[in-house]
Design a protein around this nucleic acid. Sequence first.
DNA 1: GTCCGGCAGT
DNA 2: ACTGCGGGAC
Length: 307
Amino acid sequence: MRGVGGADELRVTSEHELLTSFRSFVRSEGARLYRDLPWRNTRDPYAVWISEVMLQQTQVPRVQTRWGAWLEHFPSVFALAEASAAEVLGEWQGLGYNRRALALKSAAEIVVNDYDGVFPTEVRSLTALPGIGPATAQGIRAFAFNLPGVYLETNVRAVFLHHLYPDAPAVPDRELIDPIERTCPGLDAPYAQPQDDTDTPQAWYWALLDYGAELKRLVPNPSRRSRSYAKQSRFEGSRRQKRAEIVRILLAAQGQALDLETITAKLNQVELLAARPHVGTDLVQEIMADLSVEGFCVDTGCAWTIA
DNA sequence: GTCCGGCAGT
DNA sequence: ACTGCGGGAC
């Protein structure tokens, strides 16, 4: 672990002072860079949950254009639980990673059936819901319930790597857990004694996110020095590009069943227009099997309809 | 080409 | 630990 900010800003004599000054620095940057995002003006767990899932591997500007529309279409966990998969996928189009939309609907059904529509607050209960992993669970806890925890996602990771591990080449996430715990307001550590009533988990993580986003514009992405960093595969021409196109084709069919040849033909119209190679029915067959297993569509013998 | 307020299956 | 999964802005 190394110094905070610049070496001249602070003279660090102990880990305690290091984390304490780190905290006040991030709080101050967070205040300066605060983003008044729409989902930050509610504490409705449903609305916060939707924002957290939309924000998984998806940049803020895209979510800003879609979060409000989703809440108008599906205003409550009950509305979402009762919606059809096609309706949910339709509202999701453009956000990417379509399985998130199906997970949202499945989780909504569980919250309605098992929790009477009231969102759980325990990490174990939250991560048991489809589409909610450790990061999203802590995000919901911090932003909807103002509960402390280890919220470790890319912006938070960038801030801690930049300030506490400036030269380490491959830092595992487990190294970050301790300092994150020690700096979160409300966790049992001397650094985390609340300064005032605005010193909350919610405000702390907003500050980390806002400062982390700014940091990544100023320096090369510190998260590259995370051991969990992985370069992502090419999208253009990929299987998942075709898969997403097939979902669009099924949605456009409005519940009508399409056979393998029809789906392949429609897909190849798109591929041809984009000057990509012709796709064979074998690959389409494979993708349809995956989509069926994942609940995107139902296999009606030799044809598929959107679920 | 890079990255995004990750998750789930293997 | 590794891989598949979307789509657009830069």
